[in-house]
């Protein structure tokens, strides 16, 4: 598998680490109710089909939001977390 890094171009899977759905970027405020924190910490989607995921590119230290289809195996987008949303 290969992924595009905005810094480095297409690189091999072994240079990346995935931590799951990009919802993890939506951090609740400090005073958000426990339900919001519970959902944020423990309830993550793992869809079959289009997915937005957080990947870390180790050599350059960039966190990415990768859009890919887990059924069709197509990567449709990749942006640095700083530039995403």
């Amino acid at each position: 598998m290969r992924l595009p890094c905005p810094c480095c171009g297409w690189r091999d899977l072994r240079e990346f680490t995935c931590i799951g759905a990009a919802d993890y970027l939506e951090r609740p405020t400090a005073d958000a109710p426990p339900e919001a924190w519970d959902a944020y910490l423990h309830v993550r989607d793992n869809p079959a089909g289009p997915a937005r995921e957080l990947w870390y590119h180790d050599p350059c230290g960039t966190w990415l939001v990768v859009e890919r289809d887990t059924v069709m195996h197509a990567v449709t987008g990749s942006r640095a977390v700083e530039d995403a949303q």
Binding site: T17, G61, W63, A80
Partner: peptide, 14 residues
Amino acid sequence: VMRHLEFVQQAFCR
């Protein structure tokens, strides 16, 4: 820790 700090900076400290 390095990966964590990179994440916090890039995700929450734009």
